[in-house]
């Protein structure tokens, strides 16, 4: 099955049962609908997204699984971080709804045609989407919460070692 796909697409074998196909954003719907309808890869198992902020892109991996659940195909595409938009896959896979809803909330990716892109896990979230790399969770926490008092006597060990060395040196010199 994978051989016939390999003739048509540039599929790379990553592991014995894991394959990868890199496509352009424009041919996304065509490729996915073709592979899911005409090959053995019928199930959408996960939509994984990674934020490559240094290249100004999101890399999305649509992971398809065969009917026998023995091979996985990762279909990778890049979309720009600003104005990230993609057509929905709701027409092919009903399970895409919740995955897209998750990604919409965590990255702010717009899935055109998905009617349920409202709150998933967060409630009344007003900041930038939390999984984007420019969102600094520690800064957010420091702004919104206080931690428990009583731990201010923590010492920086490197500074302490330097101080003690200097002190020992001074004592040695004084003894001389």
């Amino acid at each position: 099955m994978i051989e016939s796909l390999k003739q048509q697409y540039n599929i790379e074998q990553k592991e014995s049962r894991l394959f990868k196909l890199i496509i352009k954003k424009e041919e996304f719907l065509k490729t996915l609908s073709f592979i899911s309808s005409s090959s053995n890869f019928i199930t959408l198992s996960q939509i994984a997204c990674a934020d490559w902020i240094e290249d100004e892109i999101f890399k999305l991996n649509y992971i398809l699984t065969t009917k026998e659940r023995d091979k996985n195909l990762m279909i990778e595409l890049e979309i720009p971080r600003e104005e990230s938009k993609l057509p929905t896959l709701l027409n092919f896979f009903p399970q895409a709804e919740v995955m897209e809803r998750d990604l919409h909330e965590m990255y702010g990716i717009e899935f055109i045609g998905n009617p349920t892109l409202y709150d998933f896990a967060l409630e009344n979230w007003k900041e930038i989407p939390p999984m984007r790399r420019e969102f600094d969770t520690l800064a957010y926490v420091n702004e919104h919460f206080d931690f428990r008092k009583g731990r201010e006597d923590n010492r920086d060990v490197k500074v302490e070692i330097k101080r003690r060395r200097a002190e020992a040196k001074r004592l040695k010199n004084a003894n001389k």
Partner: peptide
């Protein structure tokens, strides 16, 4: 937290 010890029990304790 690393906090200063009152009496040195280990002379090798550098900090």
């Amino acid at each position: 937290d690393m906090i200063p010890i009152e009496e040195d029990k280990n002379p090798k304790n550098s900090s």
